[in-house]
């Protein structure tokens, strides 16, 4: 718990100072973007309104104070509370990330199951597929999926729409590399489990290969992958920055991208903080899942 608070504080502090270290006058962003021909008066008024005329340490303390009361500040560019901006964009990104996470798991299980069932050839093939999938960059993969499924086949829209068909391509773009990674992790434990004595005894009891896999091996295979889901979720959020921009899908990733480009400091810090919070929560959920799967953990 204390660790979680520390992580959040560190994330808030690092982003606060990092975004202030970059060049550019935030007052100009407020007035109308870089290159604005705003007068000195208008700039001064904007600085005063957003407290930018205060010393840095005072700005920092005010910012922390605001955080404690749940206030993330006001967006320079959108002129709306950051909590509201994030609140609007969060559901879309969560839907995307969770769908991708589920899809990623499903694909990974399929891969591992396939490899566990087949002989040496399918095993090698499975490994190649996993390594390749894990290495695919989101940007390239998304572009290829658009080219195949939207432009050529016309099955799915290339621009993400709020309905289910619009979610498939962006989610797949995130899920495929994730599946490759999860598959690699699961495989190793699955192999160990298959070679272990309990698998042998189960087989001796007359357990079918499918039953052996789903009832006995899977638990062991899933464990390391489950504990990595927190990390996986994080990669999904950072992947969302690319995928949401590519598919023109509204969400937190695109908000973050635009905010960084536009030097919208409160939105950047707010988004980073929310993502950090999500990391913490997901890691916690991953721990819970581990306990569910592994009875040994429950006794501790």
């Amino acid at each position: 718990m204390l660790g979680a608070v520390f992580v959040l504080w560190a994330a808030a502090t690092i982003t606060f100072f990092a975004v202030r270290a970059v060049p550019g006058d935030p007052a100009e962003t407020i007035i109308g973007g870089p290159g604005s021909q705003a007068g000195e008066e208008a700039l001064a008024a904007a600085r005063a309104e957003y407290g930018l005329d205060l010393p840095l340490w005072e700005q920092y303390l005010r910012y922390l104070g605001g955080l404690l009361s749940g206030d993330l500040g006001t967006s320079y560019a959108l002129r709306a509370p950051v909590t509201e901006v994030i609140g609007e964009q969060l559901p879309g990104t969560l839907a995307l990330a969770l769908t991708a996470l589920l899809l990623g798991w499903a694909l990974a299980l399929l891969l591992v199951r396939q490899a566990a069932r087949g002989g040496r050839v399918s095993r090698v093939l499975g490994t190649i597929m996993e390594v390749t999938a894990a290495a695919l960059p989101h940007f390239w993969l998304g572009a290829v999926l658009i080219l195949v499924f939207a432009t050529t086949l016309g099955w799915l829209p290339s621009v993400s729409t709020p309905d289910l068909p619009g979610l498939i391509l962006p989610a797949l773009t995130l899920a495929i590399p994730l599946a490759g990674f999860l598959g690699q992790v699961m495989r190793e434990s699955a192999d160990d489990a298959l070679a272990s004595t309990f698998a042998l005894s189960a087989r001796a009891r007359g357990e079918s290969p499918a039953g052996l896999f789903w009832r006995h091996v899977l638990r062991h295979a899933v464990l390391p992958a489950a504990s990595l889901s927190g990390w996986a979720f994080g990669t999904l959020i950072s992947g969302a920055v690319i995928v949401e921009t590519l598919f023109a899908r509204p969400g937190l990733g695109r908000t973050l991208f635009l905010a960084v480009q536009g030097r919208d400091v409160p939105v950047v810090t707010g988004t980073v903080l929310v993502v950090a919070l999500a990391y913490v929560l997901i890691t916690f959920a991953g721990d819970l899942l581990e306990m569910l799967v592994d009875p040994r953990r429950r006794r501790v």
């Binding site: 658009i146 432009t151 016309g154 829209p157 290339s158 621009v159 921009t245 590519l246 023109a248």
Partner: peptide
């Protein structure tokens, strides 16, 4: 009036008739 920042996606949406 939609915003599609990525040029390749924009063209693909036009080619497939979405926009």
């Amino acid at each position: 009036w939609r915003f599609i920042p990525e040029a390749a996606t924009r063209y693909s949406a036009l080619a497939s008739g979405e926009v």
